[in-house]
Simulated scan of single mutants.
Amino acid sequence: MFVLTGYDYFLVFIIVCSLVAAAAIILSSVLAPKRKGVERRLTYESGMEPIGGAWIQFNIRYYMFALVFVVFDVETVFLYPWAVAFHQLGLLAFVEALIFIAILVVALVYAWRKGALEWS
């Protein structure tokens, strides 16, 4: 029989996280104000009256800029553990990291040519 030993703390962590999330949802439904009115349905914009509708179209460049940011943020997340354990991983891991960086460079060149890095 397959038994996972050493994962007791992980199981406790998952249970505690689930209980905290459930408690937050239950407490917010119990403690939230129940009044319904005109003010409750208004959009809150820093205390100012809303101007225009909420369904406006944004320029696609905002989304492209955000995606490029996410790509390079993910690069940092994946390369940091690799850099910490560089001496123990060997040559194969170095080549794999170079391939990963090359793929990201190709993505950067593609985004640059499409104009995703130009804000104006």
Rank of each mutant, 00 (worst) to 15 (best):
L91P: 01
R35D: 09
Q88K: 09
E45F: 12
R41L: 14
R40G: 12
V74G: 00
V106H: 02
R41E: 12
F86M: 13
L27F: 13
A107N: 13
L67K: 15
A66E: 14
Q57W: 13
R113I: 05
I14F: 06
I103N: 00
K114R: 15
T5Q: 11
I25A: 06
L19C: 09
V74Y: 10
V30G: 00
S29E: 04
Y110P: 01
K36A: 15
V70F: 02
R113S: 05
S120D: 02
G47F: 04
P33F: 07
F2C: 04
I56D: 08
H87V: 11
L31R: 10
E118T: 14
Y7K: 14
L42W: 02
Q88H: 03
E75H: 09
P50F: 03
Y110N: 08
P50K: 04
E96F: 06
L89N: 07
S18W: 13
G47I: 11
T43P: 02
T5I: 04
I14G: 02
N59T: 09
L42K: 11
T43C: 02
G52T: 03
I15Q: 12
L104H: 15
A24V: 10
A32H: 05
A66L: 13
A111R: 05
D73S: 15
R61G: 02
A22K: 09
I60V: 08
Y63L: 13
M48R: 14
I51H: 10
L19V: 08
A102V: 02
A22S: 08
R41G: 12
N59V: 06
L108N: 05
R61E: 03
E75G: 11
C17E: 09
E96I: 03
I56S: 09
